[in-house]
Design a protein around this nucleic acid. Structure first.
Lengths: 130, 130, 130, 130
DNA sequence: GTGGTCTAGACCACG
DNA sequence: GTGGTCTAGACCACA
């Protein structure tokens, strides 16, 4: 079962963070078609946010065709997102994690790492756009 | 001189994106104490956003003690952010870029990469918090 | 609930006047941690100023850590400011008021009094700085 | 010779602070008709502000008929402001200073005192307006 | 309904 | 010309 997080300091609206997390989990194969998402109440209670916010996120997922609420049963994943084969993903992930560990050893904190990653990713996106 | 970007699709308010970019540049040593930021009007014109939005970002930086507006002259960096020595940073950056290139070769698009990176970073943050 | 005033002739930007008034009320114990400030719209309507101006004041208070806006609920005092015990304050206040009454009887108008007070206070500040 | 001060943190435009200080000094009898104000250059240098700002203040005084610039000689007080007789003023001032000293002894800092004074004065003005 | 963001445009203070 | 303030009004996120 997916575990949601909300980072209130990031400026990203909470409901979008939830949507992103589902999308990411789908891409990474952590969520499969047919999986059940936690109930609105559970999420709202765990993250201390308003149930309406969770509902909005689930509706957004429904709108994108990724999930579907079944009254009385919960919300279920309807459709996956194309991603790389699991092995390749695991490989890449391992590579990234080892880089991260190295950065951490070198003395970078999470914010510093995030700054570096954001910069490099932004440049990559710009490259890709060409 | 720092070059701002704004990603309208991310959900992060533009003025916060500007703040983040300055903070990142400070961490990465791309901005130094005493450097001048582009004028409010320049940024507004380049990014096609309202001057007030830029002003809001600069004001936020001022509140954080990172920059200071001097009427008639511009806005200047007041204080740096601790970061790693430039060489170490360059090294780490190279490592990250090579990982990124590998992921790209493997068939991942920017969104997929971002998803993976976000997930791994979030886990790292959770680790760090312990 | 605090009652805001705005003096348009003073040259002090209205949003700063609001900030000052909250700070003063905190120092004087008229506002406590947890108290709710009037809503942005109420203040804007009462003082006949733009809601954005009020918002700017509340935002400034947030930056100073004194208040915090809770969407959908209002803006609340987060932190107090050290001040003297209420009795001592009341005593001092009485002393000041009696002096003021005397000055008034002697024929001074509010502006004259303000001039005298400003001068004496400025000298006091200079003394204190030593 | 009057000694100007500028408090950059107060929000009051510097040029208005200068005007106020002249007016206050006139009310308090510290400046007399015929007295010479410091030159624009002197003030600008001492307070580290732009000469234009000082000029603007002097023009404002001229506009109010309080001072007059005599090319090549300086700026001179043209007209006084009605005030109380010097003895009465000195008496009141002494009273205020003794109150201030008491407040200080009681543990109030300049900001606390300013807060109290501002509040009491504001109420007094409201009374007077009736 | 409450706070928050953005836009558009006017005006002021300062250099 | 540069930063800073204010207004007016639209739209969004949240409770």
């Amino acid at each position: 079962m997916i575990e949601f997080r909300v980072d209130t300091g990031s400026g990203v609206p909470p409901y979008r963070q939830l949507v992103h997390q589902v999308e990411h989990a789908l891409r990474l194969g952590q969520l499969q078609v047919g999986d059940r998402l936690p109930t609105v109440k559970e999420v709202a209670k765990n993250l201390v946010i308003n149930p309406n916010t969770v509902l909005k996120a689930y509706r957004e997922l429904e709108h994108k065709g990724l999930a579907k609420g079944r009254p009385g049963q919960g919300t279920f994943i309807e459709q996956g997102l194309v991603g790389l084969p699991a092995e390749k993903q695991a490989e890449l992930r391992a590579g990234l994690e080892s880089w991260l560990a190295e950065a951490h050893r070198a003395g970078m904190d999470a914010d510093g790492i995030a700054a570096l990653v954001a910069t490099v990713l932004a440049e990559f996106r710009q490259e890709e756009r060409k």
